[in-house]
């Protein structure tokens, strides 16, 4: 596990390269799990707590979640230019790939068969997502209220398919009330 120098020293090129790596690794899915692995575990640019709150922020705000996350990380490390570098890194190569596939599709009426390969890869992408829940949960779920909040969010989202804004309107007030620190400098 390599640690970078203090975050503001991260070069724009390294930011772009990092998000390019994330995008290419996530062939078949698992983009947020890959983002966490690279940003938190490999680069050490964020803690798990900040990553989770950033993810929630990125889900609530308009825009594609993973693009938003790249903007968040880029902004944090290098300001507006960092945000642009991170997004360009995330989408440059995928845009090229998608354009080639689109060209082939409109020319031939189909794309090269990748369906069987994808069946396997998607299964692992789902596993990465579950493993991410496990790894972050091992740190954040250390009390009964935390478990209840987590289970309620899962049930509302996956089982009852409640839209995100509604779900947050139900769960977030309870979560904030539970987590409100006694003193301004109290650490969680």
């Amino acid at each position: 596990m390599s640690r970078d120098r203090p975050s503001s020293d991260v070069s724009l090129g390294r930011l772009a390269a990092t998000f390019c790596q994330i995008a290419l690794a996530s062939f078949g899915g698992g983009l947020s799990a890959w983002s966490r692995k690279v940003v938190v575990e490999d680069r050490g640019w964020m803690t798990d707590e900040e990553f989770l709150s950033a993810m929630t922020l990125c889900r609530v705000l308009p825009g594609a979640n993973q693009v938003n996350l790249a903007i968040y990380v880029g902004s944090k490390l290098r300001g507006p230019r960092g945000a642009v570098a991170a997004v360009l890194g995330l989408i440059a190569v995928p845009v090229l790939i998608v354009l080639v596939l689109g060209y082939l599709y409109f020319r031939n009426g189909s794309v090269p068969a990748t369906q069987s390969i994808l069946r396997g890869i998607t299964a692992v992408a789902v596993a990465m997502t579950f493993a991410m829940a496990y790894k972050t949960g091992a740190k954040a779920l250390r009390s009964l209220p935390a478990w209840v909040l987590c289970a309620a969010s899962f049930l509302l989202s996956a089982v009852f398919r409640v839209p995100l804004p509604v779900m947050l309107a139900i769960v977030a007030p309870v979560a904030l009330w539970w987590a409100w620190p006694a003193r301004p400098d109290a650490s969680p």
């Binding site: 829940a133 996956a158 977030a172």
Partner: peptide, 25 residues
């Protein structure tokens, strides 16, 4: 304070959402 509360309080919610997205996919 509100930042600390959001970061700490929304972590379990975020984990629930991650697990949910895995289940939905």
């Amino acid at each position: 304070r509100w930042h600390v509360a959001m970061e700490r309080g929304l972590a379990p919610v975020a984990i629930g959402l991650v697990a949910a997205s895995g289940a939905i996919i």
